[in-house]
Design a protein around this nucleic acid. Sequence first.
DNA 1: TAGATTGTTAATCGATTAACAATC
DNA 2: TAGATTGTTAATCGATTAACAATC
Lengths: 206, 206
Amino acid sequence: MATTEVPDIVIGRLPIYLRALSLLHQEGYEFTSSQELGQRLGIGSAQIRKDLSFFGEFGKQGTGYEIKYLQDQISKILHVDRDWPVVLVGLGDLGQAIANYAGFASKRFHIEAIFDSDLVKVGQSVKGTIVQDIKNLSDVISNQKIQIAIIATPAVVAQEVADKLVECGIRAILNYAPITLTVPEDVHVQYIDPVMHLQRMTYYLI
Amino acid sequence: MATTEVPDIVIGRLPIYLRALSLLHQEGYEFTSSQELGQRLGIGSAQIRKDLSFFGEFGKQGTGYEIKYLQDQISKILHVDRDWPVVLVGLGDLGQAIANYAGFASKRFHIEAIFDSDLVKVGQSVKGTIVQDIKNLSDVISNQKIQIAIIATPAVVAQEVADKLVECGIRAILNYAPITLTVPEDVHVQYIDPVMHLQRMTYYLI
DNA sequence: TAGATTGTTAATCGATTAACAATC
DNA sequence: TAGATTGTTAATCGATTAACAATC
């Protein structure tokens, strides 16, 4: 229970737990156990208990975990018990889809500004958010104290965009461009590349 | 070099190598080394060499790897040296975006059929592919011998859809619905959930 | 109380890394 | 040849799991 630097792989599982708890809650359950949770997620019950033990004691012997309480606790741990403003860079087909995706706002991630280098797109409005020239990037990020960016540009300009974002003070990047980004080690990057997931599965086919 | 069952985590890195090689190739390079590759990817050079050694010997001492050759070899290993037909289930906003995304076809994954339960959408055409009633699922999959499916339905019906896909013989599922699926162990599932990636990063913010 | 399930320890398992002989 | 880099071994490191006392 000491603050011994929680492994990132453990942090990576917390959102999975949160998602499962959310579902259990929706289904009307009030309590669950590490065993039930593990069953649903295909994870060992011991691992779930161990993961949670990095942060405190959230259960009761004999009865397990109160779903709503555990949800709240994990939300606090992950800092998702608040709204997060986000900037989106790139408004091609992919950027359009991201801007229109309701799933972000429903989890309290709000796209506050959209940037594109194409002046034809600048001035257009997507879901009430006006597309801005990428020249305004720095001002918007510092004025609104935004820490999170989503990159949805072509791969060729993604590194350049990332550099600019880092320079503007962005601390976390969700990158949809199919390229590994180089950033300072205090900046976090996560990748979304559906093709890579498909390529990983075809290894096992035929 | 024996066939000792390659760890899945190694398979998961091959597409990353492939992506980097592709980029190096585009940039006009002809040779690379495990060190250069590792530098770009933030991975140790020893790990890259170890990963590749599961499959054979692809480099030369002193000079490293011929990019084009290594690309071809990894492509063969992953079975992405061929076209793969794919079915898409669910044509909401997300499904629309997936159907319109050029990145799949460019890597030889072709959406051959789209299914939706909404009869209003059935008959519509997206990029030349006509939306079909989900009742035709079984026929299409068996006639075209399709092994890969993409789920882009609401979370509440995703498990039900997955069950049906498995029943029809699907062997690999790319799931965009925010829910952990339960499938037989010979069926592969990969998840795309951008919100989870964001939640993982906010842990480290403020 | 009896049954269930937690939190935690210690053992196991697996993955990463450092080092180096082989060799281009 | 001299320099560079591979493929592989062995050592290290870290993550998962089994087991169980504690306790609701």
